[in-house]
Design a protein around this nucleic acid. Structure first.
Lengths: 142, 142
DNA sequence: TATTGTTATACTCTATAACTATA
DNA sequence: TATAGTTATAGAGTATAACAATA
């Protein structure tokens, strides 16, 4: 058990590092995606379309407003990467990658995985140690 | 030694988790800072002004264009949180927190540290395991 | 009445280019 | 000639509000 002051200092340091790692991760992603000529939000959406999803659900996953998903869907359709299709509930439109979109998705995912600092800098053992910590940070709740 | 395919799958998974953690970290920061009524970029700049810095250096640390630092400095001065002061090199302007700015900086740092998921979810031991991994990810080079 | 998606609009963040002063 | 900072402007990303169709 650390004393209170030391813990606060340590906590500040860790939160600062995490913020910096987040920036680095964001930059990694942008760099990995740039060669595909895609804006970052479009690439994010493609990665989330492993299966067809209602636009509303996409908004939730992207943590953005539904109106922005309309923009994204328009762009994806213009580029021939996805199509809107009707859901059972007729209010709902599913966004579904085309064959071309699905193929691109695989290539993007590979590029992102390869370009990530976490892939390049850490050993297998370190990544194995890191994974469960990230899982706890991402667990739902709170 | 894992086989190639398994490694690729694992690498994708880890990079995806890292991306999500980065988003979460960014959201944590925004939430921690919101009560202070400060835009995120302003809060970031304040945190980097633990000591007076040339505006150019601030641009490097924020990884942004110098012209944007002009905006930030204007805002900080309007709010009475920082002041421009001349450097020895007369081209240079140092940006220095006022007493009010310095006090705010402490409060922001505490709020960010407390609000970080990494502080709330992980045990002391887990944080101790995480810190060196983050350090490696942040080490300069490549 | 509540929800999905769309439209039009506007705001925030950030960069580019041209400029001034100093080195 | 090169560097620090500023100005004016423009672009990307994203939200808000009002709306139509469906539930």
């Amino acid at each position: 058990m650390q004393d209170r002051e030391a813990r606060l200092v340590e906590s500040r340091r860790l939160s600062r590092m995490f913020f910096l790692v987040a920036e680095r991760s964001k930059a990694d992603f942008a760099a990995a995606v740039a060669p595909f000529g895609l804006p970052v939000p479009i690439a994010r959406a493609i990665l989330m379309l492993g299966e067809p999803r209602p636009m509303r659900e996409l908004a939730d996953r992207l943590a953005c407003d539904p109106s922005y998903v309309t923009n994204i869907a328009d762009t994806l359709e213009e580029r021939g990467l996805a199509q809107r299709s009707p859901g059972e509930d007729r209010r709902v439109k599913l966004l579904r990658l085309t064959d071309e979109g699905a193929e691109l998705r695989d290539r993007i995912a590979d590029a992102v995985a390869e370009g990530a600092t976490v892939s390049k800098r850490l050993t297998d053992a370190e990544r194995a140690a890191l994974a469960p910590l990230l899982e706890r940070l991402l667990a739902p709740g709170d």
